[in-house]
Structure formats: structure tokens, C-alpha cells
Design a protein around this nucleic acid. Structure first.
Lengths: 155, 155
DNA sequence: CCGTATCCACAACGATACTG
DNA sequence: CAGTATCGTTGTGGATACGG
């Protein structure tokens, strides 16, 4: 990676979208709630139990994530059952998956001697799935082949 | 994504490498320090100023990140200058870049109406770079085309 | 089930001042 | 330049108990 970017610009803190993303999901519990959502968890108790966080924390994070549009809360009932609630990922929430997957992949590589307990596979062809940096021309990009540049203003 | 995974297994909390990764970089300041490292920052004062965190926090995070092997601290001197210190990404630290890039890409898409201030480009061909999920057969994978499975024990 | 209320502990952080 | 010391505030979270 080359520092072609002037680091003194106002972009750094004011507009940095990493910082903005971290404002939305900065806490451990938020990440773990989202992990569970990706794993298919939908109910309050399951979120708390599986992410191993207390109910008050689960309630707080779920409320925030709903408010920020990553999850939506929905009442539903199965035939002959009482009404229940569930939390489902929105498009905005689902689109965070690559970030979670990248964290998982890094943890698999560097923090677990067995390569991690969970594997991602392509449903159609069964092949393992990985997170990659790739350019529009189709090249896989290593971290040392990157240029950073200010994005030109659109319009 | 399909929940082909039994969510009650001990894997969830004990071995989950997302949780492990979050133990290493759970705080906002750790992410921002790493962002700066990727942007090319190497010196203490610059980390604090550019990530907009206080010196005590910068000192604490840098120490932890060095201890966990994401950064290394190094004395160096340029000719006729006094000795200085710098922090550089290790391979382990650099390998976290896809996670940062994924967060940035998500923030660019959902939290900034101008598509974000920073652009990643392939140095060789100049084309923009994106984070992707892709299977070993070469297919780009959407979040809804994933299967989760326990990874079989190796050996 | 799906939460809320209360209380408490500790971590994270900023501000400020200071040192080799 | 590269930090440490101190203080106060807020955030994050666990434990426990309780209510629709």
C-alpha cells in the first residue's frame, strides 16, 4: 500500500467511512449480535444465549441495530401458536456480512490453530468461499498492491 | 445464507474466531489506529492526531497492538537525525486489511451519500478495488448463496 | 417467551499537565 | 518527538429480579 494520500486532509476524521461504520457497530456485542443474525438466529432469547451476552445488553443492542436499520423487528405467528417476535437482517445489515467474514477469516488464520470452526461454502457448487480484494479488471489484489486516492467528487 | 449449522454447539462462543478477533481489536481506537497504519502513518504523534484520539489512548492501543503482533515498534534514524521510533504493520496486522476495507466499503455504500472519500485502486492496472466473497470455483457469492458448515477436523 | 428495572464493576476515552 | 500521570466522565456489560 502506498501513501499517495495526504493524511492531513479533513477527510481523515470527518468523512472517513470506517469511523462512521464504527459508530454503528463499535461494540463487541453488536458484532456478536450480527454474527448470530447471519447464523440464522431470530429470537431475543437466542441472541442473548448464543452470543453469551446478558438480556439487558441484548435488548440495548437489538434496539440500536433496529433503529439504525440493520435489523427489523417483526411480529409473526405460526398456525395455532401465539404471536412471536423476530429480528431479521435488512439489506443494509446483510451487506455487512463481508466485514464479518473478513474478521472470521483473519481469526481463522491467526488465532486458531485448527483453521476455525466454521466454513463458508457456495451453496450451488459446494466450493469454499473466501473474502478477497479484487480489482475491476479481475486481478486478486494483495495489500501491498494497493493505491489509496481521494475519490473525485461525483457530479 | 442457510442455517445448516446447529447453533447450540460449543463452537459458537468457545471457538468462534469472530469473537477471538474482536478480543484483539474490539475498540474503536484500535480500528482507527490500524486504519492509520494502512494509510501509512508510522509515528506516535501522527497516530494520535490523525485518528483523533488522545495520547494516553494512542499509547495504550499501540502497546497492545504491538503485544499482539499486529504492529512492530522499531527504532530507526535517518542520516544526521536523531533516533526515532516507528510502528509498522506485521504480516498479521496487514492481513486484517480486508476487514477494514469491508467496513469502509459498507460505510461508503450506506453511510455516505457521496460514496466515501477514499478509493482503492490496483497499482498495476489502475482499476478500482472491491471486497468480494468468492468461491474456489471463481463465482462471486452473494450473502444469500452461502452455506455454513462445521469445518471438519484436520489430520 | 420477550423483554424491563436496578445496581454495580470496570473499561474506554478525553482533557490536561508534565517528562526525557 | 514519544510518551506517562492524573482525573473525571461515559460506555459497556454482568447479575439479579421482576412483569406482560
Amino acid at each position: 500500500m502506498t501513501g499517495a494520500l495526504d493524511p492531513r486532509g479533513a477527510w481523515a476524521a470527518d468523512r472517513c467511512t470506517i469511523a462512521k461504520a464504527l459508530d454503528v457497530v463499535s461494540t463487541r456485542s453488536a458484532f456478536l449480535i450480527l454474527r448470530e443474525a447471519f447464523y440464522g438466529t431470530t429470537r431475543f432469547d437466542d441472541f442473548a444465549a448464543r452470543a453469551r451476552i446478558s438480556e439487558p445488553v441484548a435488548a440495548a443492542r437489538l434496539r440500536e441495530l433496529v433503529q439504525e436499520g440493520l435489523l427489523e423487528r417483526e411480529d409473526y405467528r405460526e398456525p395455532r401458536q401465539r404471536t412471536r417476535q423476530r429480528y431479521r437482517l435488512t439489506a443494509k445489515g446483510a451487506d455487512l456480512f463481508p466485514a464479518l467474514a473478513a474478521l472470521m477469516q483473519w481469526g481463522d488464520r491467526w488465532l486458531d490453530n485448527r483453521g476455525g470452526p466454521v466454513e463458508l461454502r457456495h451453496r450451488d457448487c459446494g466450493e469454499p468461499v473466501a473474502v478477497e480484494l479484487r480489482c475491476a479488471a479481475g486481478h486478486v489484489i494483495g495489500t501491498n498492491e494497493l493505491d489509496l486516492a481521494r475519490r473525485p467528487r461525483r457530479r
